[in-house]
Design a protein around this nucleic acid. Structure first.
Length: 611
RNA sequence: GCGCCCUUAGCUCAGUUGGAUAGAGCAACAGCCUUCUAAGCUGUGGGUCGGUGGUUCGAAUCCACCAGGGCGCGCCA
């Protein structure tokens, strides 16, 4: 039993059509839609049925519409039906039926809008997946919010959702992190700091210290605390022993220093562990909680990449080949080279993609295939990844790999998030790691608050660029959608408090026929579209639609509130009219509930009052 | 050079998967508000939906080509 009265009516329309024209094919019936008309004057619902079936039924739309009008007008919930335009049938519902939906809302509470459209399909939503090489910054923020809200949305729409974070704790970047952590460690244990500047360490060990931020100081201290000076580099006289050569870092040995690879591993592991703790704290500040953290390194160590490659090999999808250089932009050091390629062009990709680097190690792509193979092994029906737009060129190859591994059974959908430009008083905030001016996620949340961050990140389509103005998101004006929606909820709560917090039973028993004002009915029409919005947003994977819906809903409520200023008989609480008061309180309670429901999807806390 | 994304009112953006006369906020203009619900309210003006073709009952939406902006293009992740 759906709460979406539009799809419920669509079923009635299909039943009527089948009674009139028994031979209509199923795919034609499936195209029959019932929607809210753009023009309120057209009624509460409109169906395109006559237009859709005109051709298969070989009848003019007007004639079908006329027959349909007769059938639909007889339905108990329908007040009036009429044919209009090129063949639409407009329906006006009985006001008692419209208002009766409030009873449904009050009964369901925040579960109103829950849908079964996902049919329990198991879906994995992977998002954030920031490299564990430092604290989260605003660049990660949008994907975190979009992914989290999308996962919530899918859950509300009846999918069985797993929220996942893929930890890129293997590869060159975390190796660089290990060196940086080791350098910080040296700064703690070596008394003579002039000997261990970043430049000297880089020169001495032939490495680049990519991550010099202060956030690794604590890692160095932790290493010193646990290992004392036992990881300190050793000076080597003469030729290193065979054992040292095997265990140590080659470039360091040439320069007369010995650093055991195992020490670097320890530095790297501790750094990654501490960064992940920091990242998870940041995510918690943002209200993001993911239940699976899948480690790339763990996959590699379990030979999952080899297994994934073998699986593709078994399907005959791998070969040794030479790629053409990209036309018009040949890299300077390009040289044709045979490499292990995945035949992704067989699955819609432009070129085949390499799985091995020239040194024989796996590419990031190969490990990512293992990651997705792992998800497939866990039995999902649908995989969704939320990525930054700069990974857009990666979509088709990953989709190809998932298609190949699942024999086409499991789709991979990728939601791309465009860049966020942080603004302060109309001026862009420059982001520079080196200058230390970049905005961490923590800074952002401390400045404007979690709820403003989350809401604002959902006020644009995810694939559109966005400006995030630190001043505007905390302004308490109508232009600020965060405030506007919160204010509507606070007003609802204020009314209910003043009314002495009526019980659920009292609200449910309200005589709803008192709700007759246009602003009241408009608000009801908005509320009843909530289940439909949830379904449409979930199927489109577009959580931002929830934010826009809430803004519209808030606008309808504010209009109603303002009507009471002009005409005091429209105020919510009227002591001389207990019936109207009860009905309006029910409407207000339903409004507050739907706002809470929507904010819940967005991960935003509704406020009881504005301060 | 190729691929993907984007282009809607002066500005920032929606547009219910192809529906009827394309919407909202800001800005502009006109009126209202001496707190019983004004951290405002009502109304007005504003558009070649980047351009040109095509598909059909119907296109901002789908297809082709073109223009402008963004991202990406073997051994980074």
């Amino acid at each position: 039993m759906t709460q979406n009265i539009f799809t419920a009516m669509a079923e009635q329309v299909r039943a009527a059509l089948t009674a009139l024209y028994p031979d209509l094919p199923a795919d034609v019936l499936a195209r029959v839609q019932v929607e809210p008309p753009r023009e309120a004057a057209h009624g509460d619902m409109a169906t395109n049925a006559a237009l859709v079936i005109a051709k298969p039924a070989r009848l003019p739309p007007a004639k079908i519409a006329a027959a349909l009008v007769e059938k639909l007008a007889a339905l108990p919930v329908v007040e009036a039906a009429e044919a209009a335009g090129p063949g639409f049938v407009n329906l006006r519902l009985k006001e008692s039926h419209l208002a009766g939906q409030i009873t449904v809302m009050l009964g369901a509470g925040e579960a109103y809008g829950d849908s079964a459209i996902g049919a329990g399909r198991r879906v994995n939503v992977e998002y954030v997946s920031a490299n564990p090489t430092g604290p989260m910054h605003v660049g990660h923020c949008r994907g975190a919010v979009v992914g989290d809200a999308l996962a919530n949305l899918l859950g509300k729409a009846g999918f069985a959702v797993t929220k996942e974070y893929y930890v890129n704790d293997a590869g060159a970047q975390v190796a660089a992190l290990g060196w940086a952590a080791y350098w910080r460690y040296l700064r703690v244990i070596e008394p003579n700091l002039e000997e261990w500047t970043a430049e000297q360490v880089e020169h001495r060990f032939g490495v680049t210290l990519q991550y010099r931020g202060d956030y690794l100081v604590a890692v160095g201290e932790a290493l010193a605390e646990h290992h004392g000076a036992s990881l300190a580099p050793q000076r080597i006289e003469g030729t290193p022993s065979a054992a040292q050569a095997a265990a140590g870092v080659a470039s360091a040995l040439e320069l007369g220093w010995f650093v055991d690879r195992a020490w670097l591993d320890m530095a790297r592991e501790r750094a990654v562990a501490m960064m992940m703790i920091a990242i998870r704290e940041d995510l918690e500040l943002l209200g993001v909680t993911q239940e699976v953290f899948l480690s790339e390194r763990a996959l590699v160590e379990a030979n999952a990449t080899d297994a994934a490659i073998a699986a593709l090999e078994a399907k005959g999808l791998l070969y040794e080949g030479v790629l053409e250089p990209p036309k018009g932009k040949t890299p300077d050091d390009w040289e044709p080279r045979p490499q292990l390629l995945f035949r992704s062009t067989g699955f819609g990709d432009d070129v085949d993609r390499p799985l091995k680097k020239s040194d024989g190690s796996n590419t990031y792509f190969a490990n990512d295939i293992a990651c997705h193979a792992d998800k497939l092994k866990r039995g999902y029906d649908l995989l969704i990844d939320v990525w930054g737009a700069d990974h857009g060129g990666y979509v088709s190859r990953m989709g190809a790999a998932v298609k190949a591994l699942s024999d086409g059974r499991v789709p991979l959908e990728v939601v791309l998030c465009q860049i966020v430009h942080v603004m302060k008083a109309g001026e862009p905030v420059r982001m520079s790691k080196r200058a230390g001016t970049y905005v961490t996620l923590r800074d952002l949340i401390e400045e404007v608050g979690r709820d403003a961050v989350r809401f604002t990140m959902l006020t644009r389509k995810s694939d559109a660029q966005m400006e995030f103005d630190l001043d505007k998101v905390v302004e308490q004006t109508r232009e600020n959608p965060v405030f506007y929606v919160q204010y509507a909820h606070a007003r609802c709560r204020s009314v209910l408090r003043q009314a002495g917090e009526p019980s659920g039973a009292a609200l449910t028993a309200a005589p709803l026929e008192h709700l007759r004002d246009k602003a009241e009915l408009d608000l009801i029409r908005r509320l009843i579209s909530w289940p439909r919005v949830v379904e449409a947003a979930a199927m489109a994977r577009e959580p931002h639609r929830i934010a826009f819906f809430l803004h519209d809903l808030a606008a309808d409520f504010h209009v109603l509130w303002n009507r009471g200023r002009e005409d005091s008989t429209l105020r919510f609480i009227r002591e001389d009219e207990p019936g109207a008061t009860a009905a309006r309180l029910a409407l207000v309670a339903a409004t507050a509930s739907v706002i809470r429901s929507g904010l819940g999807v967005m991960g935003v806390t509704p406020v009881e009052e504005m301060r």
